[in-house]
Structure formats: structure tokens, C-alpha cells
Design a protein around this nucleic acid. Sequence first.
DNA 1: CTTTTTGCAAAACCTTTGCACAACC
DNA 2: GGTTGTGCAAAGGTTTTGCAAAAAG
Lengths: 132, 132
Amino acid sequence: MPAIKYSRQREAIKNFLMTRHDHPTADVVYNAVRHDFPHISLGTVYRNLTLLADLGEISRLRVGDGVDHFDADTSPHYHFVCNCCQQVSDLEMDSLPVLDALNEMDVDGKLIVGHVTYFYGTCGDCRKEEAH
Amino acid sequence: MPAIKYSRQREAIKNFLMTRHDHPTADVVYNAVRHDFPHISLGTVYRNLTLLADLGEISRLRVGDGVDHFDADTSPHYHFVCNCCQQVSDLEMDSLPVLDALNEMDVDGKLIVGHVTYFYGTCGDCRKEEAH
DNA sequence: CTTTTTGCAAAACCTTTGCACAACC
DNA sequence: GGTTGTGCAAAGGTTTTGCAAAAAG
């Protein structure tokens, strides 16, 4: 396990992510950080997002659209994906203890240690659009 | 919406999928169906898997490993992904009404119509390996 | 005969990686 | 100075697509 050294690029990536609550993709992060680091490469963005996720400082969301999304808020909360505009957002909803209760449980010979749940539907903006 | 015509390849793809309970990837389907259709192309496999999924005859699982898995069993049931061997399997577990109860609900301005839940952990085989 | 599907190959897309150089400590 | 991170470009892996030929109805 090599030591981790500071890098201004990594700090900028994390700082940007902390200002956003819409769970941007690597490409969005890249284009944003490029304002401060015009020569930063997409590879560096990916490397740092992966490193930060491995360190547990951010989380990686795989909501099923084929692209990874990233979230600087690592506290437990649910995510919502709009079927209409594909936007990913946080769900202001209490945690569901039923799901967590399954952790450490043996179901069918399998030891459950975690789960991932995403909710799908129509977001507020798209519902207004539909109302027209 | 164009009409749908029968194709022997599509039938073979669906038939193969119905014999398997391990949620194969497109590539696995391709290699299997190739025994009967040596000249079938991967593109055809992808087109048919997508069509069958759109028709609701099979379901597409995106468990977060970057590859799509397919399941001919479209009845509601949960899936389990082994962190160790990456195998995807069915979970013999009753449905969790808490999750379904959220359908049609308005949470935070968002209309929930569905959800996806995957469980992660160690499967039976890998637990035996670990016991050594 | 018209429409849909196929095979093939190329492209698209997202992500990872090798390497020489720069940054960090 | 030794180690880690970066930029660049190339490669990797999965999935989609354009097109002429084949199959379906």
C-alpha cells in the first residue's frame, strides 16, 4: 500500500464534488475542474475519483444508466433516478431498517453484508412538464 | 412502432436464457447460442436481448459490475451478488412490502414508480473456500 | 413484394493504463 | 532523492449502429 501524497487536482475534484448535490459523472467533474486546471486530463479525474471512493471520502453510484455518478455526501441516504430526464437526486426519506436488518444474515446459504437500492420515477420538474 | 417478426435466433436466445438461473451476460449468451447458430453475431445477440427486455419478456440486471446480466425469470424476486466470485444469483426471500409500499408515493415532490435492490455479500461456495 | 432481422465491421462510449515528466515531501 | 501524481495518448471492454444481404410474412 503506497503512501498517499497531496495533489492540488485531487483537492479541486473533491471540492467541486462537495458543492454539487446532483451526483455528477466523471465527465462533468472533468469539465468543471478544467476551469482551474486547464491541462488536467480525464485520466487524472478518473484516477482521483476512484482513489477517493476507495478511501471512502466519496461514493460511487451505479444507477444503471451505464455511467458512474459520484457523491461527496457519504452519509446513508437513498437516491432517486428520474425515468424522464435521467437526473439523479437525493431522496429526503428515512432509512428503511428492514433492509439494514438483513445485514450479517444468512439467507439461503449466502451471507448478506450490504445492499444497494435506487428508486425510479418522475421528478418534480418532469411532472410539471407533463402537466402541460 | 414497427411490427415484430419471428426470428430463429431470437427464439434460441430466449430458450437458452430460460435454461439458466445464473443471469448470464450477453457474451455468455453469444457463446452458447453459437453452438446452434455458428454465424450469429454479437450485435444480433445484443439487439435481441434489448428487444426482449423492452417487451418485458426478460429482465436486464445492472448489478454494478459494468456488464449487463439477463434473466428470463421476470417474476419479482431479489438478486444477490457475491463480492468474492462476482456470481449473480437469486435470493430465496420474501418480498419486502416496505419497498413496494413506496410505489405511487410522492416523496419530496418525486413520484416513485419502482425501485431496484441488489444484495451483496459472500455466497455459499466462497464461504466454504474461506473456511479452509 | 414489403418489412423486419441478420452478419459483418466499424464506431461509440466509458474507463483504465503505460510511460516520461512534474510535483510532493 | 525517492516516491507518488500527472498529462498525454493509446488501449481495453462493453454496447450500439450503418449497411447490404437474407429471412419472414
